[in-house]
Amino acid sequence: MNLLNLFKSRGGTAPVARERLQILLAHERVRLGPQDLLARLRDDLIATILRHVEIDPEKVMVKLDSDAAISTLEIDIEIPREKIVGDGKRRPLGDGELSAA
């Protein structure tokens, strides 16, 4: 064993570990987790819309596209012409309300 090593002060390597992990995980979360993100987005969107309009959760399409520069989120929701609104009464959609896609 080299006694000199005892006196040599080596900087901690933890900050390097931390920085490498932060960069790596930022990438991996996007690369490995897009389906998860979409599933969660889809669930949140359905829950939000269901509070106002009755829709068929099966007819909600959420798509994420990305190229080098930008990502686009495409949401396609089919809403029936007549629907049940919050108070439970059936009524047709008024102007300015969500209309069928």
Binding site: G12, A14, P15, A17
Partner: peptide
């Protein structure tokens, strides 16, 4: 961890 050789709890 105190010597910075291991990720800290906060990290």
């Amino acid at each position: 961890s105190a010597r910075g050789e291991m990720l800290s709890v906060a990290d």
